[in-house]
């Protein structure tokens, strides 16, 4: 169980760094576009489509699970975080499982959508031909790892303090 937990954390961290890199790439691309335009009258044409199609979806979803692990998906805090006794225990498990079911559905549907784009070789005809499968893939990737995390927390309920 501990090994699985470590592996999961490592996957989350890797995806998180991917998200950070995507943000850094946005900064570089937009600034390159502005400076090239001002300095040489030659914009970086791919900037807009690259950002909108690939970098935004990646930076917005790859870290879904890591953010959950850090307690970054906020919940209303009317009732105390750790309700005592069996009731509290059951509520926490149901909560995790419900969330897991929802994101499993999102992963499955968005995954099917991405897969279809890959198999049909779907392309967005932009400044260059953009393969759409890679654009869509960030969503099932980010959500899928979140599902694993939610299941892991369900099984480990009580042992960890990362539950929502």
């Amino acid at each position: 169980m501990i090994a699985i937990g470590k592996l999961l954390s490592r996957i989350e961290d890797t995806l998180h760094y991917g998200g950070c890199l995507a943000l850094a790439a946005v900064v570089v691309l937009i600034n390159a576009d502005i400076l090239m335009r001002l300095g040489f009258g030659r914009p970086v044409q791919i900037q807009f489509e690259m950002t909108e199609l690939y970098l935004m979806p990646a930076l917005a979803t790859l870290s879904l699970s890591r953010v959950f692990r850090d307690g970054g998906h906020l919940a209303l805090d009317i009732v105390p975080e750790h309700m005592p006794g069996l009731a509290g225990h059951v509520i926490r498990r149901i909560r995790l499982l419900l969330a897991a079911a929802f994101f499993a559905a999102v992963t499955y549907m968005s995954g099917k959508f991405a897969l279809r784009a890959f198999t049909r070789g779907e392309i967005e005809f932009g400044v260059i031909d953009w393969p759409l499968g890679w654009a869509y893939a960030a969503i099932p990737l980010g959500c899928g790892v979140l599902v694993l995390r939610l299941f892991y927390e369900t099984l480990n309920e009580g042992a960890s303090n990362a539950s929502p």
Binding site: E52, M56, P57, A60, A135, I139
Partner: peptide, 16 residues
């Protein structure tokens, strides 16, 4: 609906 809600939301230049 779940198929592309997340993508359509995230894939937005204004959001950046």
């Amino acid at each position: 609906v779940l198929e592309r809600t997340f993508f359509d939301t995230a894939s937005s230049f204004v959001l950046v």
